[in-house]
């Protein structure tokens, strides 16, 4: 099974997520340069974290307008699973594949720490192996992760069950104290209406080895494997 990771100038979690895909689920991984016009035949696409194009203009804005993106959008529309992590999530919002946007953290500071997340949607290709309501711990590392959308968009997301992950405390309570960036309704990750496109601020690829602290991130990649195997 082949997963494509798109590399932009300034991507810096591309190597990390490639390893996570290979090691936790045995995927074949193809790195694809942003300047290419075609995404090779693949079973899923990943937009990795980092600072594509230096975060200039707006985070993800320039990456969303690179040649490869036309093809990514086509593939997404045809149902190929797409995961955007951190900067990848920002790019998905800039592309319009996901609603809302990621604003500067409410404390105006970059934040790098482990956070607890409550898994609320297990119908996506990336979360199928979780149980609804699971509380997991994964690191965040971003300056612009403060999810914002208009009230009606938020209500639609909630109504259709498109909120995938929410910042919570260890017990799963959704509190403002557990929210690292001021995101509306503690939203850490959402998906498209058909569930095939998922964007999340936390970095699952950083939580795939016990020696690095924890392994809760593995299930995202294992979920993908199961989803593609069925």
């Amino acid at each position: 099974m082949n997963v494509c990771v798109i590399i932009f100038p300034g991507s810096n979690c591309d190597r990390d997520i490639k390893l996570a895909l290979q090691k936790t689920a045995g995927f074949k991984v193809t790195m694809v340069w942003h300047g290419d016009s075609e995404v090779p035949k693949c079973d899923a696409i990943i937009l990795p974290g980092g600072f594509s194009f230096g975060d200039y203009l707006r985070c993800g804005a320039i990456a969303a307008r690179t040649p490869i993106m036309r093809c990514v959008v086509e593939k997404a529309k045809s149902g190929v699973p797409v995961l955007g992590v951190c900067n990848g999530f920002q790019i998905l919002c800039e592309l319009g594949l996901l609603p809302g946007s990621l604003m500067r953290n409410s404390r105006m500071l970059f934040v790098c720490r482990d956070v607890y997340l409550k898994v609320e949607n297990t119908d996506t290709p990336f979360t199928g192996s979780f149980e609804k309501g699971d509380v997991i711990s994964i690191p965040v590392a971003h300056h612009d992760g403060n999810f914002f959308a208009m009230q009606d968009t938020l209500n639609r997301l909630e109504g259709e069950g498109l909120v995938v992950l929410r910042y919570s405390d260890e017990a799963g309570a959704i509190t403002s104290l557990a929210n690292p960036n001021g995101a509306q309704r503690n939203i850490a990750g959402i998906c498209s209406s058909n569930g095939r496109v998922v964007g999340m601020m936390p970095h699952p690829e950083r939580a795939c080895e016990m020696v690095l602290g924890n392994t809760d991130g593995k299930l995202f990649f294992k979920s993908l494997k199961s989803a593609l195997t069925v």
Partner: peptide, 9 residues
């Protein structure tokens, strides 16, 4: 906490 101390895995 303002430094990304985990990138590169």
């Amino acid at each position: 906490e303002q430094y990304d101390h985990m990138v590169m895995g």
